[in-house]
């Protein structure tokens, strides 16, 4: 998979952390639903779980690009990812869906409307994620803000078992400061914008918790094949 790409610098804002996060943004992933399967809930859920598993691999690679993440103790790196993996996955879906009307863009080749979500047995989750989409759309969420928020969500995972809390706090402060710097330069007339973005994180956390619960129950049901990394992270919750 090719990784590196450059984003056009849309602003004259030179924030190193934000630029670095833009560079680290993973390539898009395609869902590639299995054409041999009948169009039912199992196919939809199998497609979503497979897509999530592949995105997780990329997200772990992405996390390593966050300034300071790789210097954390390995145990703490694991705990942050175990705490925030679903928030990171959802935020990516939300950002991809900003231009879609009441539909979730899980991938370019996998877009789900409310009727399809009902068929998949995920109507509440679909509605919850759309609430986030509407919130960010109303704010005009920018790519730079999206990548920074994603990093903040990871650094803000609130694991109870962090070994070196000071180092994690430093990572959190670094990305928080990057967001504040970016907003000061990009939206000088809106001093509350960084705060308002951070205040969307509770809804993201709440929606991610709902998603993890849904997939835990799907797992218990045992009808949908799930890859190992996805299972590992589901178990971590």
């Amino acid at each position: 998979l090719p990784h590196k790409k450059t984003y056009p610098c849309r602003t004259n804002v030179e924030n190193k952390v934000v630029s670095h996060l833009l560079e680290a943004e993973p390539e898009k992933v395609y869902a590639m639903p299995d054409p041999a399967l009948p169009d039912d809930d199992i196919k939809a859920l199998t497609t979503l779980c497979d897509l999530a598993d592949r995105e997780l691999v990329l997200n772990i690679g992405w996390a390593k690009h966050l300034p300071g993440f790789s210097s954390l103790r390995l145990a703490d790196q694991m705990r942050l990812l175990q705490g925030a993996w679903m928030e990171v996955l959802l935020l990516r879906v939300v950002f991809r869906s900003l231009g879609a009307q009441d539909r979730l863009v899980f991938a370019e080749d996998y877009v789900m409307d409310a009727a399809q979500a009902r068929l998949a047995g995920l109507p509440d989750l679909h509605a919850g994620v759309l609430q986030l989409v509407r919130k960010y759309r109303a704010m005009g969420l920018e790519m730079e803000e999206f990548v920074t928020l994603k990093a903040i969500a990871l650094a803000n995972a609130d694991s109870m078992h962090i070994e070196d809390a000071e180092a994690v706090q430093k990572l959190q402060d670094c990305v928080h400061e990057a967001l504040q710097d970016y907003e000061r330069a990009r939206h000088p007339g809106d001093p509350r914008r960084a705060g308002r973005l951070i205040m969307t994180l509770p809804l993201l956390r709440q929606t991610a918790t709902m998603a993890v619960r849904s997939f835990c129950s799907i797992r218990q049901d045992g009808r949908v094949p799930m890859h190992k990394l996805f299972l590992e992270l589901l178990e971590a919750n």
């Binding site: 990329l58 772990i60 690679g61 690009h65 190992k228 590992e232």
Partner: peptide, 20 residues
């Protein structure tokens, strides 16, 4: 760690997303 061996392995890999 044993329980989360894939996550552990992916984090230990020195290179990033390309390293699938």
């Amino acid at each position: 760690k044993e329980k989360h061996k894939i996550l552990h392995r992916l984090l230990q890999n020195s290179t990033s997303p390309v390293d699938l």
